[in-house]
């Protein structure tokens, strides 16, 4: 058992993450503008940008889903209760006492149980709800007979999920600061390499067959 820097976020995954980040930021900004929280963009530009980003994000998601399924990366998100409580306890108490993070990244398990379950919820619940409600919102003249109750519900659901995604963003960014340094936490998503506990077999395999993916 040894800790080595290995490639855990491949090029596509990093591209997916950062372009998704950018799109979600623009969507939140334009979306809350359309909602009437600010007038920094005129309504027409806000709607155009919002729709354009939403369509781009949908396309990106289609690629990402395909990528997850074909590369087997989806396994990282399989929820587990094993160690979940420990991680929760760490963020609630241990972190203040200077304890070490109870989870150590593994080659086939790059997220801690709390992360995995959060990301899974995001992907299986929040994202589908926001894009289904968004598509219904965008195309409501095709299915709704009036812009009364039917549209109200779509709008309420879409806005509620937008709030939830903003909450996720806030917590997600904050948690970047909980490691040794903010930079250390962000770097893996930039260069792809993170410190991971490897079994000797994994280490040997990587060094022999994927020397570019291990440092």
């Amino acid at each position: 058992m040894s800790q080595r820097y290995i490639m855990i976020f491949t090029r596509f995954e990093r591209f997916w993450h950062w372009s998704q980040m950018l799109l979600i930021m623009i969507l939140l900004f334009t979306g809350f503008g359309i909602h009437g929280f600010h007038q920094l963009l005129d309504f027409q530009s806000a709607v155009e940008l919002h729709t354009l980003c939403a369509i781009s994000l949908l396309v990106l998601w289609i690629f990402a889903i395909f990528w997850h399924l074909t590369t087997g990366t989806w396994r990282h998100y399989v929820p587990t209760t094993d160690g979940l409580w420990k991680v929760a306890q760490f963020y609630a108490f241990g972190i203040f006492k200077g304890e070490r993070h109870p989870y150590h990244k593994a080659y086939w398990r790059k997220h801690n149980p709390l992360q995995a379950i959060s990301y899974l919820a995001l992907k299986l619940f929040l994202f589908p709800v926001i894009w289904i409600s968004g598509i219904l919102y965008l195309l409501y003249p095709l299915w709704a007979t009036t812009s009364a109750e039917q549209l109200v519900w779509v709008a309420i659901i879409h806005t509620a999920v937008a709030f939830a995604i903003l909450l996720f963003v806030i917590i997600h960014i904050y948690l970047l600061s909980t490691g040794h340094s903010f930079k250390e936490h962000v770097m893996p998503m930039i260069n792809g390499f993170d410190k991971v506990e490897l079994s000797s077999e994994e280490e040997a395999y990587l060094e022999k067959d994927e020397p570019g993916n291990i440092r």
Binding site: H35, G36, V152, A155, T159, I170, I171, Y174
Partner: peptide, 27 residues
Amino acid sequence: FYMPGRDSNYWLDLLGIIAIITTLLAV
């Protein structure tokens, strides 16, 4: 009728803003 930009659900907005502020404060 519901018109984006003009209309919003008061309680949802209130709840949403409270949730955001609470989260920020908690963080």
